[in-house]
Design a protein around this nucleic acid. Structure first.
Lengths: 197, 197
DNA sequence: ATTTCGACTGTTTTCGTATTATGGTCGAAA
DNA sequence: TTTCGACCATAATACGAAAACAGTCGAAAT
């Protein structure tokens, strides 16, 4: 456990370099030699800090997930009530992905190719998503603004719907339409769970 | 316009042959020579009835859309009230795609590759979907069981959500989970549009 | 003990090229 | 009107050689 701070800093440096390559060239076309050269270290050193290229990629995904997580928490905290929190959650999440797809130009191309790998890597984030949504929904029930029979399944349904909309969103299938659609879905969703006097 | 019946019959024969090839090998790996040989006609004859390979593929898609359409209409007619109609619509549509993916083994692989082409070809079907959903929703409003401000956007939101769920459904990302998810979504949806006393 | 790396390896990817397969055309024949 | 054989330009494939690649290892540096 000695020198762990120093090791983490170095890992971070490597990730910063790797991130840029993955963004521009994707997983397949990014080479370990390039990462090593750009980071000014030997390629072998890379393998001292990470066990494989996929491992680095996974670390980048997890880092990205942490950024989104803090973004979500920030926007949720800003929201005044459960309704606004839920709205902020869905909108922030979908907008973030959209922005990401501009930076990660390879994201759209490699989406099908690496779908299951990314999904496996995001497992923790997905758990976080469900937990957070459950918390928001539960808070809404407690405050008497939501009326939901099964919070678990409701949270799961929301997550799967958001995931489902990811690919069409990346393909910009309906481009401008998409944000409207999300708003409409939110409206229907709210009418669906809002308790009425 | 002479001999149009005979021509249509021949076209139908070609489609039946082509369909099986597309199902087993997908669009790319199916060759015009194979279709011609199996249909026992010259390849040039194929081009007398269809203007390109994609044209045949599009015809197969449209045929499949018609089948789904009649399936939908059958199940909608069977349903007693707007709520059951809407439920039947969504479930029939999603189950049909799932069944189709068993038959069309290439569907999953080629989904990203031909996404935009299939989408363009399905445009008419998509219009039908929105129209049908609007009719169901309008009927629900008229009978006082639904309460929706904007029928158009609601119908659109439902269609886009169903489309969004297609790819995860094909990838069987949550396999058994998927049908449950659709049910959950339907439940939320219903709570969202049902009028309450 | 931790960290770094050069040299190495077995496997993929790339590349140039020759060859085949394929989508599509055309004019003639039925 | 319908059919098709012969034909064409292009795209896919096959293949061997060369290059690039992910990952290993033992030794050197810290």
């Amino acid at each position: 456990m000695i020198m762990n701070d120093k090791k983490d800093i170095k890992k971070e440096t490597i990730l910063t370099v790797a991130e840029k390559f993955f963004a521009r060239f994707g997983l397949r076309k990014t080479t370990m030699d390039e990462i090593a050269k750009t980071a000014r270290i030997g390629k072998s050193t890379l393998y001292y800090y990470f066990k494989s290229k996929e491992d680095i990629f996974a670390a980048v995904i997890r880092k990205e997930s942490r950024i989104l997580k803090s973004k979500l928490e920030e926007n949720i905290a800003r929201a005044a009530n459960p309704r606004e929190k839920l709205s902020a959650y869905v909108l922030t999440r979908m907008k973030h992905l959209k922005e990401l797809s501009n930076y990660y130009s390879s994201l759209t191309d490699e989406y099908p190719e690496h779908y299951s790998f990314v999904e496996r890597t995001r497992e923790d984030f997905t758990k976080y998503e469900i937990d957070t949504l459950k918390t928001i929904l539960a808070e809404g029930i407690e405050k008497g603004v939501f009326q939901i029979a099964d919070v678990d399944t409701a949270a799961q349904a929301i997550v799967i719907t958001m995931k489902g909309l990811e690919y069409p969103l990346l393909l910009q299938e309906d481009a401008g339409n998409m944000e409207d659609t999300i708003h409409n879905l939110l409206n229907i969703l709210f009418k669906g769970i809002e308790s009425r006097p």
